[in-house]
Amino acid sequence: MTKTQRNRFQKGQNTMLISRETKLWMYKTMLLSRRFEETIEQIYLEGKTPAFNMANGPIPGEMHLSNGQEPVAVGVCAHLNAEDIVTATHRPHHQAIAKGVDLKRMTAEIFGKQTGLSGGRGGHMHIFDTNVNFGCSGIIAQGMGPACGAALSRKMQNKPGVAVSFIGEGAVNQGAFHESLNLAALWCLPVVFVVEDNAWGISVSKQDSTAVARNDVRAAAYDMPGHFVENNDPLVIYKVAGDAIDRARSGGGPSLIEIETFRLAGHFMGDAEAYRPDGEKAFLESKDPIPAFRKILLAEGTTDVALDHLKDQVEEQVSAAIAFARESAYAPAEDALTQVFAQGEYHE
């Protein structure tokens, strides 16, 4: 039995030990991410109908929604503290929300406003919140090296904290993926690599791009544990991620986790999704993890009233964030010329 297989068998499936408080946080955070994105989706279309022009409306540019992928974010980030580092991708909202990024300032950033996390310079693919050590990059797999570096920094300074690098399944054939796995294992870094397998790299399916059916097997090539989680199940993700993060925290080194999830939306807004087989969308909608999670919580004794109360809180948070963003001013256009270097220097 290989090390990878052994780890898979050791993977605990008993999710009853997860506290009710944690489960409710996970549910609420999934809901927050979903309601946030549903609202962003509506606003994104303002000014873009009848003719779709990406440059128009209060939220211009590309928009990558993570609807459906919320279980990954909450299952992993439930184990993280503010001091832990997350590097995320071009599809970062669910991870940012689960990591505790300031929702108001993130929303303002998505709108390009002065009160945004970077004053409108970054937008939705470049969300940085230093208070919770969250950052992302719009380039596939390129957050992995920086995650290794942050983990190395903690190790060298003997400071607490692990790094988690989220990537999509389309990132696993980048050089950065293999280089970073090797470096992390070689230096026994406190880092966990999480592959969100939503089955599609824009329009190219996993089976058409990747020689192995499951990427957790690739962990064996770098002598680290590999885990695979089926069915987008937040509670199993929580358990598996917890093991990997504990291992990293206690000096055991890196792990690779691949999580089978799905995106309910297109790669980006405006994607006609003609590449999807007939019926896939309806099938995925029937497996929506949020109603499924609600059922579990109800079965475990949480009341409808309690869950509806969480939903009300979420609606309030989303409304407040959107209002904050809408009411915020745009920075002067000349601000584009500042913050190129540290201390805001600009060299003509």
Binding site: P146, C148, G149, L152, N182
Partner: peptide
């Protein structure tokens, strides 16, 4: 520990430099 020979993996170790610098090194 402080003078680190790296594998021939410029993407990983330059990326790691970025991550370490951002984390205070």
């Amino acid at each position: 520990e402080r003078i680190r020979d790296t594998p021939i993996s410029e993407t990983a170790f330059i990326g790691a430099g970025v991550g370490a610098a951002q984390d205070g090194m």
